[in-house]
């Protein structure tokens, strides 16, 4: 089997952009849950997660512990791959292409080049076109999203502010990305040159967004989702799936909360179902206000 961007071939091709974006399409309307042990991965799968993110510490603990946060131990990732039948994602540091090579060798299904880990490169993101495995990257605005897509990202997620249990930053990022997509749709062809300059994004990608009214890849929400209502809010704003990091396993009773967030993501426009699934879930993660956040993970990435 040949690999990479050999789109003109008629034989089998793996790792093409169609194959990478294809998996992102399959994850739509679903919930991707952070897990730190095989037991948590099983709870997530039982609850109806479409994928799990394997990591050593959830963002809330990374935030609390400080220090350098890196790719997880391959042994731990292998344990989670062995525990579940759904796709497994794992995080590499921004710009750390060797961590990404290792994750690809382990057979993870998606790599998150994540600002939650400590960046390894202060100017460059990973050249994601050089990999067969698909990547998801965080973005706070449309320019950042399009730069990541130009580097080969197969999925974009809002950054939000991971580990806070506070959805306000994810809402800000979704509104910024989707609002600018709507504004670009109104721009004339001459104005698109200025948009490309202001967004620091490649002109052809800006023109394509103006024409189609959407990003080239699926847009998911991440960062601060703690309740079924948070998930439905992200979906109604225009996200196509949600990542839940600390919000499940830092809550009082993870299993029912996980299941409720799955149902809320599917039935995000039905307030009666949302009311039903939001009942009696126990305490959500406590969460923190933005003025108490010492370090903004969302500011990492360029």
């Amino acid at each position: 089997m040949t690999s990479m961007q050999d789109a003109t071939s008629s034989g089998p091709v793996s790792g093409s952009m169609t194959v990478k974006r294809g998996l992102a399409e399959m994850l739509k309307g679903g919930v991707i849950m952070d897990v730190v042990t095989p037991e948590q991965a099983k709870i997530a799968e039982d609850a109806g997660a479409v994928a799990v993110m394997a990591l050593e510490r959830v963002p809330a603990d990374i935030r609390r512990d400080g220090g350098v946060a890196r790719m997880s131990d391959p042994e731990m990732i292998d344990g989670i791959i062995g525990a579940v039948s759904i796709p497994v994602m794992a995080k590499a540091r921004i710009g750390h292409f060797v961590e990404a090579q290792i994750l690809e060798a382990l057979g993870v299904d998606f790599i998150d080049e994540s600002e939650v880990l400590t960046p390894a490169d202060e100017a460059h993101h990973i050249d994601k076109l050089a990999f067969s495995v698909p990547f998801v990257c965080g973005a706070t605005n449309l320019g950042e999203a399009l730069r990541r897509i130009s580097e080969g990202a197969a999925m974009i997620r809002s950054k939000g502010e991971a580990g806070t249990g506070n959805v306000v930053e994810a809402v800000r990022h979704l509104r910024s990305i989707l609002g600018d997509i709507r504004r670009i749709g109104q721009a004339d062809s001459a104005e698109l040159f200025d948009w490309a300059k202001r967004l620091s994004a490649p002109l052809p990608l800006v023109q394509e967004v103006a024409e189609t009214g959407r990003l080239q890849v699926p847009l998911f929400c991440a960062g601060g989702i703690a309740t079924p209502a948070d998930a439905a809010l992200a979906m109604q704003l225009g996200a196509e799936s949600v990542f839940v990091g600390s919000g499940i396993f830092k809550s009082a009773d993870p299993a029912p909360r996980a299941k409720a967030i799955v149902e809320a993501t599917t039935h995000f426009r039905d307030p009666h179902i949302l009311a039903k699934v939001s009942r009696g879930l126990g305490a959500p993660m406590t969460g923190i206000g933005m003025d108490q956040v010492a370090e903004r993970f969302a500011e990492r990435g360029w």
């Binding site: 089997m1 008629s10 034989g11 089998p12 091709v13 793996s14 790792g15 093409s16 169609t18 194959v19 294809g22 998996l23 399959m26 796709p87 690809e104 057979g107 299904d109 998606f110 067969s132 495995v133 698909p134």
Partner: peptide, 26 residues
């Protein structure tokens, strides 16, 4: 297999000389 085994390929369709591109994801 897993995502690394996902692929696209030409597939012969009955009643047509043109193959179709078939995308296999996990």
């Amino acid at each position: 297999g897993r995502q690394r085994d996902s692929f696209e390929t030409d597939l012969a369709v009955p009643g047509s000389a043109d193959p179709m591109r078939a995308v296999f994801i996990r």
